[in-house]
Design a protein around this nucleic acid. Structure first.
Lengths: 143, 143
DNA sequence: CTGTATCCTTAGGGATACTG
DNA sequence: CAGTATCCCTAAGGATACAG
């Protein structure tokens, strides 16, 4: 007798065929992109590392988003070869392909956010070549 | 005696100084980016045009998001010179600067959304030069 | 360590009627 | 036309305890 629990991830209904709409179905909330940022630029791969980020995501939200990201084919979960009781989260190729979009969002926010005041020399890095900017983000934020 | 109503837009608290976090504060929901898409690529400028989009946004949500976007300095509202009882919504420079980020999201979604099946020749346009891709989106979607 | 489950509160949002 | 207001339900999310 399987009881219905409220934690099953409900499939979000498609609202239109627009690619923007698809992106919003998968990424359109206040937490998902932070996890992808951590995976993409900060070199984080463990549940606990995500919990440690500044935004202080709750455990239930994190678990839910990781599950949705797996379902969307953006994140892959596997055993950690270094630690037999830990798990590793990695971006799939589809997930890695989000790098340019995330970079452009970061460029935009760094330029226009009145409160964040990104240092000039870092701004120059962001405004430079894409691949170089992504590499620079990785070394600045993480890993 | 001003009664408190629930419709006043509450200021969202800053969760961290990360630019990604700022972007999410402003754009991180399931509707805002659709409005920006309509402004940026579809040439829409009137309340009723936004209501007409495929995703069928509700009037209260639309009004709320337009208000937030003005508060964030992304959208500017003014009288319509063509029609004395209508209003015009336009992107500010800050709003226009979202074009690259939105383009990259569209590229990503068009490549990876299993259901949307963007035609090959359109895919080629999206994968080409940025300015050309943006111009092409405008003529394809709108105006 | 990696999650689940539960409780409980707030925010989001659809429908619809109404106002300037 | 361009919104507001209201009703009402669902989804999101914080806190915390617990389980494999």
């Amino acid at each position: 007798m399987t009881k219905m629990t409220k934690m099953q991830t409900c499939k979000i209904m498609r609202r239109s065929d627009c690619p923007v709409s698809y992106a919003l179905e998968v990424l359109g909330d206040r937490w998902t992109l932070l996890i992808i940022r951590d995976l993409l630029f900060a070199g984080k791969q463990h549940y606990r590392q995500f919990l440690g980020s500044d935004e202080k995501i709750a455990t239930n939200i994190l678990a839910d988003r990781l599950r949705r990201l797996q379902a969307a084919g953006i994140v892959k979960k596997g055993p950690d070869p270094k630690n037999r009781r830990a798990f590793l989260y990695e971006l799939t190729p589809k997930g890695n392909d989000l790098a340019p979009a995330l970079l452009e969002l970061i460029r935009w926010a760094a330029r226009h956010d009145p409160d964040s005041a990104v240092p000039d020399d870092y701004m120059r890095v962001l405004d430079g070549d894409r691949d170089q900017a992504i590499a620079s983000l990785k070394s600045a934020l993480g890993d």
